[in-house]
Design a protein around this nucleic acid. Structure first.
Length: 758
DNA sequence: CGCAAGTACCTTTTT
DNA sequence: GGTACTTGCG
């Protein structure tokens, strides 16, 4: 910082020039905006994070707003952490008291403060999807509903949808059709179950604050507290979050939102694009500022992205531009299969690293579904390139981690039956189905928690379990009681180590998992590590089991992503939102996969897939490489596909098409050789407007290749559908077809009188 | 009750 | 190609 003058705060202009001099016109306009609600329509790479942080800095420095009365909402905890850092870098330590977090973490924080009023335990548990499903399963069993006909997953989805629409079980029932009557009943029972367990699910963290604000006194209090509200990724907010923001800002109208309608990718989770599209009509005194200068990507990449997104209707409309120069064209490789795809990525990364042009952590490989990481991981392992996978099997969802956390959850919240059920027989205590049923029946009949039932059975006051089992239950009860008593006063790491020791968890892993035991124990060690770190940031006294469990319940994969890892990053397109990389590899551009078959029917679904593709392209600074494979392993079988329609939407002048032809067909067993050399050969097939695209789109490997995943077909009785998978060949060729309305059917190709469409 | 073997379904994306 | 659930035996 060049400023040597120790400027008194009465001459804030000096600061302002200093702090804000790097901003361009529209950015300054946004940062210095005075007046009512503002929508900053910020294109990819247009510096929206800078705008947000500088806006906060400006509020504090220039307008002398108390940092504690500013609320900034981000999309991930990681983004929240970074924003906090940047704010305090701009305004000093005072910036730490700005409320920064995700809607979920802010909701949780608020609900803890108001737990008394809400009549919930301060140390409520937060149920993730697994916990929800587990709770629903119990309820289905109770209600004698077959989980086959009413899958818990879809019940969870229905309840989530209802909650986000702010519908209570009663309201849900009123609008319900006959099938949904049952769902309404399950919903009601589920709510009761949550309450009994002092548990909230993710949706509650959003919904309950809104309900809390129906009390005008409470609403006013928070509207008075949060005098300025800023929201990032506004395009992915849902109706409930909209209500939250409205409740807090309707009095003072200091709402500052940043978003990009072209990057809205969470419609399936309830995100409501109309929040951003209708922002101006919703707020009569609103202003709009567009940030269209992109500082990230080279010209051709940006132009390619623009040419794709132009195919969407129903957007605010904006055209990104850059002064970075043209750069390289986007390259598309057509490869025989997913293994070749992985090898090609590997080879390009390796070449880039060897030539000193790039470091592995400058590269990201993006895909539509988590399952696609496998082939890539295999290739990278063989090729000796370090990588990190973000997402997929998430750390905090691993079995051993959830087991250990379940012990803590029970200590923190003795009403958490879902957690207790999980650990009742882990390690094995001879408590099987029968004992569990007895315990639950007893608990229900007596109106006590499952834990209390365990205690009573242990001391023999509940008439269940034989001697041996009673002894085991007594032991477990005593362990939990002892740990509960000491938990509030000790660091969580120490407590956990003691519990693990006492239950012999390591031996349990050895016994249960044999070969895998080491990995799993390593994960547990990593968890203990995380607890130590937690103690370092929070301070020993505050690093209790309760605090840790709360924190961890809201931790996500992207929060764990490390940008200085020296490793190539592998992740889904969804996880890539907000990130940037010099080199981007976009894989699996095939019909049925991307756009995904489940989304390809509805216009809205397809447009969201297209936005996802747009997000992928705009992550890149210098180089985008696209891949489409003819054959892909899926569900253990082979699947033929056609190239993604999105490829045809890229302006052909900006796309260089190449094919990788296997020289002969490489023997399947030749995998070991791939690390050293590339056996295939790459030919340019088409570039620019000279259309030389004469090689086949997919190889005629078998006669069945006339049919491929992603093809549209007409079935005499089921109507129009899209082929999703193919198994078997010849007479035995079986197709999985998804028909309109999402109905999936398996048919034998020889019998189904299918007609090919388009 | 634990365990081994068999099965069904899975894969969209996640706070 | 994997998991999570079911079934049947000891």
């Amino acid at each position: 910082m060049p400023t040597q003058i120790s400027a008194p705060s009465s001459t804030p202009l000096l600061f302002s020039d200093d702090l804000f001099s790097g901003l361009n016109g529209p950015q300054r306009q946004a940062v210095f905006h005075e007046g009512g609600p503002l929508l900053v329509l910020a294109g990819a790479g247009s510096g929206k994070t800078r705008v947000l942080t500088h806006r906060v800095a400006w509020l504090i420095r220039q307008r002398e707003i108390d940092p504690g009365s500013i609320l900034a909402v981000t999309f991930t905890n990681k983004a929240a952490g970074e924003m906090k850092e940047r704010i305090s870098a701009l305004v000093g330590e005072g910036g730490r008291s700005v409320w920064v977090g995700t809607f979920h973490s802010i909701g949780a924080r608020l609900l803890r403060r108001e737990s008394l009023r809400l009549g919930i335990a301060r140390d409520f548990s937060i149920f993730d999807r697994d916990d929800q499903i587990s709770a629903i399963r119990r309820i289905l069993a109770d209600m004698n509903i077959s989980p086959k006909e009413t899958p818990p997953e879809s019940v969870v989805a229905a309840i989530s949808r209802a909650k986000n629409a702010l519908q209570s079980p009663d309201e849900f029932e009123q609008e319900a059709l006959s099938y949904d009557r049952q769902i309404a009943a399950i919903y009601r029972a589920y709510q009761a179950s949550l309450r009994r367990q002092s548990a909230l699910d993710f949706d509650d963290l959003l919904v309950l604050p809104v309900e809390l604000f129906r009390d005008e006194e409470v609403r006013r209090r928070y509207a008075g507290k949060f005098k300025h509200v800023l929201v990032d990724e506004y395009q992915d907010t849902n109706r409930c979050q909209y209500s939250f923001l409205h409740a807090v800002t309707q009095d003072h109208r200091q709402l500052f939102v940043v978003g990009d309608d072209d990057q809205s990718i969470y419609r399936w989770r309830g995100a409501d694009l109309s929040n951003i599209l209708d922002f101006e009509s919703d707020h009569p005194d609103a202003s709009l500022i567009r940030l269209e200068q992109n500082y990230r990507s080279t010209g051709r990449i940006l132009a390619a992205a623009n040419s794709v997104i132009r195919h969407n209707v129903g957007r605010k409309g904006k055209e990104l531009w850059t002064d970075r120069g043209e750069g390289d064209p986007v390259v598309l490789f057509e490869v025989p299969d997913d293994q070749m795809e992985a090898m090609a990525v590997l080879r390009m990364v390796k070449a880039g690293v060897e030539e000193g042009r790039i470091s592995p952590d400058d590269c990201v490989v993006l895909y539509r579904t988590n399952a696609q990481s496998r082939a890539l991981e295999n290739a990278f392992q063989l090729g000796g390139i370090q990588y990190q996978v973000v997402g997929g099997q998430r750390f905090y969802e691993r079995r051993e981690i959830k087991d250990v956390l379940a012990y803590l959850r029970v200590l923190v919240n003795p009403g958490d039956d879902v957690a207790l059920r999980r650990i009742l027989n882990v390690p094995a205590r001879g408590i099987g189905k029968k004992t569990l049923e007895d315990l639950e029946a007893f608990a229900k009949a007596t109106g006590i928690t499952l834990l209390e039932a365990v205690r009573r059975a242990g001391v023999g006051s509940a008439d269940l379990g034989r001697g041996n089992i009673r002894a085991k239950l007594a032991e477990l009860g005593a362990l939990i009681d002892r740990a509960t008593a000491s938990a509030p006063a000790r660091p969580v790491a120490e407590l956990t180590e003691e519990i693990l020791e006492e239950i012999g968890y390591r031996d349990h892993l050895e016994k249960e998992f044999e070969r895998e035991a080491t990995t799993r124990w390593d994960n547990v060690a990593e968890l203990l590590n995380a607890m130590q770190e937690f103690a370092e940031t929070e301070g020993r006294v505050d690093a209790t089991a309760s605090a840790f469990v709360q924190e961890v319940s809201l931790t996500t994969d992207i929060d764990e992503y490390d940008e200085h890892s020296e490793r190539v990053t592998l992740m889904t397109l969804h996880n890539a939102k907000g990130l940037e990389f010099p080199w981007v590899f976009l894989t699996g551009l095939e019909e049925g996969l991307f756009p995904h078959a489940n989304s390809a029917y509805e216009k809205e679904g397809l447009e969201e897939e297209r936005r996802l593709f747009y997000v992928g392209l705009t992550r890149a600074q210098e180089r985008v490489t696209l891949f489409t494979a003819t054959v892909r392993r899926r569900y253990g079988g082979m699947q033929h596909s056609m190239p993604s329609r999105f490829l045809d939407e890229i302006d052909p002048d900006l796309l260089e098409r190449r094919a990788i032809l296997p020289e002969g067909r490489p023997a399947r067993s030749s995998g070991a050789g791939w690390g050293q050399e590339w056996r295939g050969r790459s030919v340019r097939t088409s570039y620019g407007s000279e259309e030389v695209d004469d090689h086949p789109r997919y190889e005629e490997e078998t006669q069945d290749a006339a049919l491929a995943a992603g093809m549209r077909v007409l079935h005499p009785s089921w109507g129009e559908g899209i082929i999703e998978t193919l198994e078997g060949r010849g007479e035995n060729l079986k197709l999985t077809i998804r028909f309109r309305g999402g109905v999936k059917k398996k048919v034998l190709a020889v019998y189904a009188k299918l007609e090919l469409l388009g």
